[in-house]
Write a protein that binds this DNA or RNA. Structure first.
Length: 574
RNA sequence: GCGCGAUUAGCUCAGCUGGAUAGAGUGUUGGCCUCCGAAGCCAAAGGUCACAAGUUCGAAUCUUGUAUCGCGCGCCA
């Protein structure tokens, strides 16, 4: 759906092209954009094109603005008037009728009201989480999970064809450590004592896995050499962990189209082929018995080993193969959501793509900064190796799925996130998800109020929206109208937090409107025409809000339970 | 040392390809419930946009340098 701003931009572009074509403006048509204004006296949208053109045209900005103003007219009925202000701003005042028309279109569009065709069907692959199956998901994985999930949803709304993918590192040294850790716990459960080696996963979950192996194998491997049990222990450990990771993600509302196993992928494509291609392109050399990829030629800090002395390939080698596989599946854009601690990895993966003949810019990496968790005002130290990680599942249980998801995308990815569990569970507006959900519930209550009073179901007919003339009502329509723009912008920038702020603004506008007129211009009143118009507006608002919350994966409750503490069972009624 | 990220109100943070008087929440202070949901609303107070140069009609935004904090710098993943 096109917003009014988009329609007006199109009109303005058309006008400028005409002015340039007929010589009124002796230049090429400039790229223009409309900005929403900050104050009502500046109209609804402003454009600074005249100022930008002043220098190349060697003319006064205000004179240029006047020419544009005259040629634009009422922009096909969209505008009530255009004013020239300040150094040369064009301030556009949208006609009431155009807002009513916009609202009618929003109501007609239904779910499509949030959509745009920015992506034009382009294929995008979003890879996120991809946590090693050597331990449960912790809180930082959670942030990456929601970030990826919401970016994927935004891209879908913005007209991209999206696939979501989890890359499972089910090969390598770390998985061996998992297998050995399980074995030590297995032996312990069978009465043996042990000292923990340096490479060891200390988490409780390892004991849970070991318990299943005691059940399966009894004492079969108790004194057996490693070669006899390692494969079984490793594979069962990975399978168990992956099962738990899937459960945690499902409980969090995070889903994937594909789970790509490193083990299966490398078996299928064969790393030798990929390394040969690197070699043929002249990027591989041998030294000290190892095969190196000269990534320094392609923007990396140092060269990287792809094949070790003993012939085993490195993780990096399979990651090159994985990204090659992604590109070969026809994606124009690869978006990877990584933790900030993987930042140093970007250059070498890009180098891999470049060496294989792809444009390295097609890989975008969103680095999600760390989450610092505090509980009751005290910082909680994190350390996966120390077993002091905070599991995502525990956080969700404590704060609730809605609040947790909302918190994780509230801030820009580049900002470190302060996650205060006490705050997230608190019944206050520090916890903005409740504010937004409350707004939705209030809109539902309004609709119910109308039903209770015997007001007929409002229908959209000619002139039905004409009674909407209060400035706050027009503001609300304007807020809704820009939804496809906000989503497209957020999708383009890969910035979920923009949606959060948009929701907050829209809800604040509604609460303000509601409170201000609760004793005068009520939504449900004795005036049938006004009631119908306002109920229609509220319906659009409710739909918009529900759609936005849906993008965040946060529920839009029809009622809020006032008694229960948020975060506990029943705190939010679906 | 090098790379990436951050630095904006007491606190937590927005600020959209450079635009008009830098915003929101929270906290503080003071007002609103015979009301369609007060988990709400309204108002006040609160700023050297880390610092310094530069680019131009115009900089929180772009460039360079400095400072402080976080992350990374493995033939782990």
């Amino acid at each position: 759906m096109a917003s009014l701003r988009t329609k007006l931009t199109v009109q303005l572009q058309k006008t400028l092209k005409e002015l340039c074509d007929n010589g009124t403006l002796a230049c090429d048509p400039p790229a223009i954009f409309l900005t929403p204004t900050k104050q009502a006296s500046h109209g609804d949208y402003a454009c600074s094109a005249a100022m930008a053109l002043a220098k190349p045209l060697k003319a006064k900005p205000r004179d240029i603005a006047m020419k544009i103003q005259g040629a634009l007219g009422n922009a096909n009925g969209l505008l009530e008037k255009t004013e020239i202000a300040g150094p040369g701003f064009l301030n556009f005042f949208v006609a009431k009728e155009a807002w009513h028309q916009a609202l009618a279109e929003i109501l007609d569009a239904g779910d499509a009201a949030l959509c745009s065709d920015l992506g034009a069907g382009e294929k995008v692959l979003v890879e996120y989480v991809s946590a090693n199956p050597t331990g449960p998901l912790h809180i930082a994985h959670g942030r990456g999970a929601v970030t990826g999930d919401v970016i994927a949803k935004l891209l879908v709304k913005a007209g991209y064809k999206v696939e979501r993918e989890y890359y499972v590192n089910d090969l390598g040294h770390q998985t061996d450590i998992l297998g050995r850790s399980i074995y030590l716990r297995y032996a312990e459960l069978l009465g043996r004592s042990f000292v923990t080696p340096e490479d060891f996963y200390p988490g409780e979950y390892v004991i849970d896995i070991a318990r299943t192996l005691v059940e399966e194998f009894n004492e079969k491997f108790l004194d057996a050499p490693e070669a006899e049990w390692l494969d079984d222990f490793r594979e069962r450990g990975i399978k168990w962990m992956l099962g738990r990771i899937r459960e945690d993600l499902a409980a969090f509302g995070v889903e994937f189209d594909n789970w790509v196993s490193e083990k299966e992928l490398t078996a299928r494509v064969g790393l030798e082929g990929v390394i040969d291609r690197l070699q043929k392109a002249g990027h591989v050399y041998e030294e000290e018995g190892k095969r190196w990829f000269r990534t320094t030629d392609l923007g990396d800090d140092k060269d990287r080993v792809v094949v070790r002395e003993d012939g085993r390939t490195t993780y990096f080698a399979s990651d090159i193969a994985y990204h090659d596989d992604k590109m070969s599946r026809g994606f124009n854009t690869l978006i990877n959501i990584w933790g900030a601690d993987h930042g140093g990895y970007i250059a070498r993966v890009r180098a891999g793509l470049a060496a294989l003949g792809y444009d390295p810019k097609d890989l975008e990496v969103i680095l999600v900064q760390m989450v610092s968790l505090s509980r009751d005002g005290e910082a909680v130290k994190m350390g996966k190796r120390l077993g002091t990680a905070v599991w995502l599942a525990d956080v969700i249980e404590e704060a609730g799925r809605d609040a947790t998801r909302y918190f994780f995308v509230m801030r820009r990815s580049e900002s470190q996130l302060e996650f205060d569990l006490a705050l997230a569970t608190k019944k206050s507006l520090d916890n903005p998800v409740f504010y937004a959900q409350y707004g939705h519930a209030r809109l539902c209550a309004l609709a119910q109020k109308a039903v209770d009073k015997g007001v007929p179901e409002p229908t959209l007919g000619p002139g039905a929206l004409d009674p909407l003339v209060l400035p706050e009502e027009l503001d609300l329509i304007r807020a809704m109208d820009k939804a496809p723009d906000v989503i497209a912008d957020a999708a383009r920038a890969r910035e979920p937090h923009q949606v959060v702020h948009y929701i907050q603004d829209m809800i604040a506008g509604f609460h303000s409107y509601f409170s201000q007129y609760k004793n005068t211009e009520k939504v449900v009143s004795d005036d049938a025409d006004k009631t119908r118009a306002r109920l229609l507006m509220c319906r659009a608002l409710r739909n918009t809000l529900a759609g936005l919350l849906g993008i965040l994966g946060v529920s839009a409750p029809e009622r809020m339970d006032f008694e229960a503490e948020p975060g506990e069972e029943g705190g939010v009624t679906e």
